[in-house]
């Protein structure tokens, strides 16, 4: 759901900005939005936005929990129950 919220708000934000650009530069809407899209003026914004969505996806799909589960099961297979027990003690 976080991804959805983020997506909607980023689309809305882009609309806001392109609307203002239409007003300021007296351009066509299409032209303004093409100018605005993060391909221009430099590509770094794409990375930032991508990072934002990545973060949202991370929390959305509970990656931390999944990774822990994966590694937890691995360590159980290798080192027996002791490791897991120690970890749980620390948390508790």
């Amino acid at each position: 759901m976080i991804i959805l919220g983020l997506f909607i708000i980023s689309v809305l934000g882009l609309l806001f900005m392109s609307m203002l650009d239409v007003l300021v530069f007296k351009q066509q809407f299409l032209q303004a939005i093409v100018h605005l899209l993060p391909i221009y003026p430099d590509t770094s914004t794409i990375f930032i936005i991508a990072a934002a969505f990545l973060m949202a996806a991370w929390t959305d799909f509970d990656m931390t929990k999944r990774l822990k589960k994966k590694f937890g099961s691995q360590s159980n297979k290798q080192g027996g129950g002791e490791n897991g027990g120690a970890k749980q003690n620390k948390r508790g």
């Binding site: 759901m1 976080i2 919220g5 980023s10 914004t45 930032i48 934002a52």
Partner: peptide
């Protein structure tokens, strides 16, 4: 979107940063 509080902050902040450039 009925999420848990505090989950939106980091992605939204990054988005704001990107918007500030755009």
């Amino acid at each position: 979107f009925k999420g848990q509080q505090g989950k939106y902050n980091f992605p939204l902040a990054l988005l704001a940063g990107a918007f500030s450039i755009l």
